[in-house]
């Protein structure tokens, strides 16, 4: 069966388009799915991660997935970031060094993921990023990655990719999973029948965590928000019907018209931020407790 893929930017409409594709293909089993890019005018490279959530579900149901009518410019983007390689199409060398390649990480592969970041981030703006910004970026991405493993219940792993925009001084990094979604975890934990949007808002409150264990949690996303605010970057969280966006200009949460079967976090940082992290209050090791 043929399924059209519309224009996909990393925004509400783009995520809705991917969620629509997920919903349209959700019943397909033992069949073939041709993702038709004929009407796609643009595809943000980092959106490969949420798109793979759709692909992996199709493959879980033993469907044959192929790409059709891919415009040349989009093909180049998706070859350079290695997304098309997972669909058995040849990779193209990224001579501009602006992509962080699409990659699938399995459960507990957090140290491998750290190696991936160390390998690919340094030439994507990190050379001009301050040491502190670089560290905060790594910490933020690792918090999201670890959260995905702890909370998502994804059996397909975690899908990552990124894109550096040297002229705009922006670095986008996206982590997606095909797990149960924030809504399901929050509903189970609180016993409340929250919507996807409310569940994302709940998860963003400092100290809120759906982890059922002896130790506290619920700091990761709040720390990322603080970092993004200082850096004047952007944070997007998409989970099931919920689309959340935060930047220094404010935050919004909106319900998408379709169900995205998992969770996706997109972090965009301003790589020209030079010194906003240096001022920290003095604390010492025996009085901190």
């Amino acid at each position: 069966m043929r399924f059209p893929v519309g224009t996909v930017y990393s925004d509400f409409n783009g995520f809705s388009a991917v969620a629509k594709l997920a919903q349209e293909t959700s019943k397909l089993v033992w069949d073939s799915a041709e993702l038709d890019f004929g009407r796609c005018k643009f595809f943000d490279a980092n959106m490969s991660a949420p798109l793979y959530v759709v692909v992996t579900r199709l493959r879980d149901e033993l469907n044959e997935v192929s790409i059709q009518n891919l415009p040349v410019q989009i093909e180049e983007i998706l070859r350079k970031n290695c997304f098309l390689e997972v669909l058995n199409l040849r990779q193209m060398q990224d001579t501009n060094h602006t992509t962080l390649p699409f990659k699938i990480f399995k459960t507990h592969a957090v140290e491998q993921f750290y190696d991936y970041l160390k390998q690919y981030v340094p030439d994507k703006g990190a050379s001009i990023m301050s040491k502190m910004l670089n560290k905060r970026f790594f910490q933020s991405i690792l918090e999201v990655f670890s959260n995905a493993f702890v909370h998502s219940e994804s059996v397909s792993g975690v899908f990552v990719c990124g894109q550096f925009f040297p002229k705009k001084h922006k670095l986008n990094f996206t982590i997606a999973d095909a797990g149960v979604g924030i809504r399901e975890k929050v509903r189970r934990f609180t016993g409340l029948r929250m919507s996807s949007c409310k569940a994302i808002e709940w998860a963003l409150v400092e100290g809120h965590s759906t982890r059922n264990s002896q130790h506290p949690g619920g700091l990761g996303l709040k720390l990322i928000k603080d970092f993004i605010n200082t850096n004047q970057g952007r944070l997007q969280i998409v989970s099931r019907f919920g689309f959340y966006e935060f930047s220094s200009k404010g935050q919004s949460v909106n319900k998408m018209p379709y169900d995205f079967p998992g969770t996706c976090v997109n972090i965009e940082i301003n790589t020209h931020d030079q010194g906003s992290f240096s001022l920290v209050p003095a604390l010492n090791g025996d009085s901190i407790f």
């Binding site: 400092e206 100290g207 506290p216 720390l223 920290v280 407790f289």
Partner: peptide
């Protein structure tokens, strides 16, 4: 009875957030 050494200033700030959060949690 507990002391921490070897953390950078910014990681000490992170630890402080974790400790304050833990106290509230428990």
């Amino acid at each position: 009875r507990v002391e921490v050494i070897g953390l950078s200033e910014e990681d000490m700030v992170l630890l402080k957030r974790v400790i304050d959060n833990a106290k509230r949690y428990f």
